[in-house]
Design a binder for these strands. Structure first.
Lengths: 145, 145
DNA sequence: TGCTATACTTACCCAAAGGATAGTGTAAAA
DNA sequence: TTTTACACTATCCTTTGGGTAAGTATAGCA
């Protein structure tokens, strides 16, 4: 996604901009890029749901978590919690017993991210009907053409 | 994603739960499902960036928007704004002139969603270093095994 | 006469996401 | 002795994401 990895399309875009791109106000392109990458990683459906479940229910074992997250496959659950662990959003505690026991718990960072997503959940709940209505209208206006 | 479309895995999961699943507190499964679907649609990388750009810069034409959204292809931009239009997040005003002129502008719903995402952007900016550090540690601890 | 700008659409293609299914290891319960 | 629980892996296979390139329509400019 780096500038120099872009091919024709991107170069055309850049070339169109004025000769010397003056650095706008306050703006760190590295932070910008990182934030974008992080958002892409974190604003993922399963990540958001897992964050939500763990924030509400606290520490939890794998199978319980699997039951709580509607519709996820084992594979995706494993993969998603691993990513979250890597990003420091949760801790994964393996108890060396048999049968295995692994507990998942949000870190401070995970808890604060889940709090940050709160507004989005609220928005979705509040705008449910409005969105359904908008879709209905849009789809039927397509039919008329 | 409906309950009855689930196959073995899901049935196994359900069967494990106690005989009569008592309806917990306040909880509408239809709302829950819709919110999940909507989150999945809206918590998309490009949607979030476009929301951000339009919220900051106001109304904008296609090419300008394309310049502002780093790294997106024409195809994805078209597709994403169409979805957003369908969901009622933005309006697409076509001026019947030549060369074509199309303006994109957030609706109230779009603006409020972008506001809801504000916390997430902040979180990402604030936790950048922490996340990088966590990844570094995680990756090197893998190397030791 | 031909080029340019704009906002697309269409066709083609590859890579990644993600679902289903089966397998693993081990201790304790039946 | 077989079964079960748990937390995964591994494999296969289909769907989706997403990039590139080329095409479209037309007024105005050179």
């Amino acid at each position: 996604m780096h500038k120099f990895s872009m091919l024709d399309q991107e170069q055309i875009k850049k070339a169109k901009l004025a000769p010397a791109p003056p650095p706008p106000e306050e703006f760190d392109p590295r932070l910008e890029a990182f934030v974008n990458e992080l958002i892409g990683r974190v604003a993922d459906k399963w990540t958001m749901v897992i964050l939500d479940v763990l924030a509400e229910q606290g520490e939890m074992r794998f199978t319980r978590l699997w039951e709580m997250v509607e519709g996820i496959s084992q594979k995706m659950l494993t993969k998603t919690v691993r990513q979250m662990e890597r990003d420091g959003l949760l801790t994964r505690t393996v108890h060396p017993v048999v049968p295995p026991k692994v507990e998942y718990k949000l870190t401070e960072a995970g808890l604060s991210l889940s709090a940050a997503f709160c507004g989005v959940w609220l928005w979705a709940a509040e705008h449910q009907e409005q969105v359904e209505e908008a879709r209905r209208k849009f789809d039927e206006s397509l039919g008329k053409v």
